[in-house]
Every structure is written in C-alpha cells, then in structure tokens.
C-alpha cells in the first residue's frame, strides 16, 4: 500500500518537549548493566575464589571443570584453546548471559540505554535508519526460548547449590545441617532467579499462551495463570535477581579471600 505520510519535522537526537528528567531511567539502566557486565566478565576470568566450604558462586555453577574437588569432569577440558585463559565460568556463563540478553524486558531497556533507539519515549533518536528485530543481527533475539530451556536447567543446579549450602562440615569431618548468611543469600538467589525465569514471556507462551482455548486444558490454564502472575512484575524479578547473583559472587569471593567471615545463624 502506498503511503504518503507527511509528519511534523523529525526531531534530532535528544530533542523533546518533555519537561521531566526522562534521561534518568536510561542512565541508571546503562550504569547498572555496564557495571554488571564489567564485574561479571572480570569475575568469570578470575578462576579463583569462587568456592568457600559448602558455598559455590552462582557465576561458576554448575562447576563442570576446575581445580576444586567438587568439579564434575576434572580440572580443564582437553581441547581448551591455548590462547584463551581457562576459567570454568566461561563454559557456563554464556547461557544465563544469553537468557538475559535476549529477554524481552532487558531488550527494551538496553535498546534505550545503550543504543538510544529511542533514548526514551518521544525523545529524538541519533539515527535515521531503522531495521528493528526484523533482520540481522537483531533477528537473533528470536532464539530467546532456547536460552530459557537452559535457564530452567540452571535453576536445578542453583537449587542444589542452595541445598548444599545448608550442610556444613565440622573439624572432625562430620556433616550437619546449619544456616549461615551465605545459605540465605544462595537460597534467595535461586528464589529470585526462579521468579525471573518463571515470569519469562516465552515460558508464558509455551506453557499455555499459544492456545486460544485454554479452558479445555486445566493444567496449562493453571500454568499460564502462574506464569502471568510472575510476568506482571517481570522487571522487578529481573533487577532483583541480577543484583543478587552478583552479590552472591561477591559474598563467596570475599569469604574465600578472607575479607569477611560467614555469620552462622545456627
């Protein structure tokens, strides 16, 4: 269909008639996501201080390889590229990173904060051309549901880590139940990540959203209602889980480095 739409002059980059501080939100998103990206990359390359007693940093879970005795398959994969410094986190982190990168909420947030596309609602953009998620490279965002499958598997590992964090070994080698601050943090981490994952838009679609007549399938109807419930506050789950996963790594790292000690509640 031929369309001849004549608009009022296109606004330049950052130009707007808005009078509120529209730039604060994208600036905060930029700051937090950049900080997380820098810290996570640094932590992933450390290959040290990721474990303390029964606590394992979520950046390194599941511990497929590594110098730790709890590594599943030994110290290092045989065919690891010589030029790339080895760290067990590098094997697993691409999956949760991909899950967040392709997440519908984060997409909207970082397109604004990092790419100014748009910088905020009704604020002028720096570029005239626009391809959206219709062609390469952003068409790849449609892979999100595959990252979701991995994220669901990771929840099982992180749940197991939280369980393990409740069992402490004393000086004589006897294991007994206990709760430390680390236990609470690792448990909160898996709960927050669960809330974020179960509210995923793709999960909401896959468990029942794709059906037009949900009432004929009560199990899917309930699953869809649960996913919708989590989805309503998806943004909050996304940020809380992001903070917690980074803080859990910092907590375990500081314990391992001897900067602080783990308070035992019982």
């Amino acid at each position: 269909m031929g369309v001849d739409v004549v608009q009022i002059r296109r606004r330049g980059w950052g130009e707007t008639m808005r009078r509120d501080a529209w730039w604060i939100q994208p600036a905060i998103v930029f700051l937090i996501l950049s900080s997380f990206l820098v810290y996570a990359t640094w932590a992933a390359f450390q290959n040290a201080h990721y474990e303390y007693g029964n606590y394992l940093s979520p950046f390194y879970s599941p511990l497929l390889f590594g110098d730790s005795a709890s590594a599943w398959f030994g110290p290092k994969p045989l065919r690891w590229p010589a030029l790339l410094p080895f760290s067990p986190a590098l094997i697993i982190l691409p999956f949760p990173a991909g899950f967040r990168f392709t997440c519908y909420y984060y997409r909207g947030a970082y397109y604004k904060a990092f790419w100014a596309d748009p910088p905020s609602c009704t604020v002028g953009e720096p570029r005239k051309g626009y391809r959206g998620e219709r062609s390469f490279p952003l068409i790849i965002q449609n892979i999100h549901r595959y990252f979701l499958y991995f994220a669901l598997i990771f929840l099982i590992f992180l749940g197991h880590d939280a369980w393990k964090s409740m069992w402490f070994t004393d000086e004589v080698g006897k294991t007994h139940f206990g709760i430390g601050l680390g236990t609470l943090l690792l448990t909160a981490n898996v709960i927050l990540l669960g809330g974020y994952t179960f509210g995923c838009h793709s999960l909401r679609h896959l468990v029942g959203g794709y059906l037009d007549r949900l009432s004929r399938n009560p199990v899917r109807k309930t699953a869809y209602a649960c996913a919708s419930c989590f989805n309503r506050v998806h943004m909050r789950w996304a940020w809380c889980s992001l903070f917690m996963v980074a803080f859990c790594d910092i907590y375990v790292r500081m314990l391992s480095m001897g900067v602080w000690t783990d308070p035992r509640l019982f």
Binding site: R107, G132, N231
Partner: peptide, 21 residues
C-alpha cells in the same frame, strides 16, 4: 519485527491496556 519492545505504547494507553506484554 520492527517493534523493539520500548513499552512506550503501554505507558501512554489511557485505557491501561498492557499492549506490549
């Protein structure tokens, strides 16, 4: 595919329709 999920449409809807989600 052009929609890049800015959620601006949801923000301005006077009927409160959750357009994007």
């Amino acid at each position: 595919g052009y929609c890049n999920i800015t959620k601006c449409c949801t923000k301005v809807c006077p009927e409160g329709i959750t357009i994007t989600d």
